[in-house]
Amino acid sequence: MSPILQGIVTIIIGVGGCVGYFYASNLILDKVIFPARGAHIGRNINRANKVRPWLFLFPAIFALSLYLVYPVIGSFYRSLFDRSGMGFIGLGNYFDLMREGTFRTAVFNNLLWVLFVPALATFLGLLVAQLTDRLSWGNIAKSLIFMPMAISFVGASLIWKFVYSANPDIGILNSMRDFFGMAPVDPVQIPFWNNFFLMFILVWIQTGFAMVILSAALRGIPEETIEAAIIDGANPFQVFFSIKVPQIMGTIVVVWTTITILVLKVFDIVYTMTGGNFGTHILPSYMMTYMFRDDGRATAVAFVIMILVLPVMVWNIRQARKEMR
């Protein structure tokens, strides 16, 4: 069966199956198990209503547990075993990783990414959101800066491969160096700083996201506070830093954490640009070097990423719970 046909069949089975499941399970619940008639009509209706939420939730809970909860446990369990998956070696994989230079480089680079990318993306997003707020062509500018969000990390990497190319006839950066009489350099091969050239690609993608959210937050600031500040003689910078920024601090933190989470997942950029060479590995790309070769190590690296994500996860959950109250 060709994949396209298989796809169509899957859509039909998937959608039909979902609708069928919800319809049939509700029907059975109301008509067969707890029929709303006879002697126990009141009790039956109440019972049916107690069960129904779980009918609605079951497919989602099932898929979530299988595809997201089970892997957390499964990965940790697997990381305690050696390459073959037979020999239990406790935390051996983790100790081996610690001893490896590339792993330490990857952790160090990943910390750089986590510090630099969210900071710069949020800052630029805020800057653009503020600057375009009063421009007549602000919406067009925003739309264009938002555009990289739609581009894949692989596509974006290729786009920037052109910009960074060491050949002055292809890379615009080196063409400028050439213009000023400097020898061409390959930005992705300069030790240490190459990391920042790679990070900038992600900043380029994520600034639009930060801008959209922060722009909406800026619009939501009550106008009276700003007017009062202006009447009191605040200059535009004071209005921005002392009146606006404190009021949208919550949103800034949300944007920051969202981008942080993303940074800890993205392996495509490093994979496409350098393949981890020239000291640019980060944890997700480093994990892929073990994928299909040594599952024990791969899951150990994945679990290290999970540990790094954990504080943000806890913070997110607490925020969400506070919100619901």
Binding site: G74, S75, I261, A302, M306, V309
Partner: peptide, 24 residues
């Protein structure tokens, strides 16, 4: 509790899922 769990699962790194799910 379920809503909190969904919020928590939002940020679980995909990397964790690769090995166990492929095996599954």
């Amino acid at each position: 509790l379920l809503i909190a769990a969904v919020v928590g699962l939002l940020v679980v790194p995909l990397q964790l899922a690769l090995v166990p799910l492929l095996k599954l």
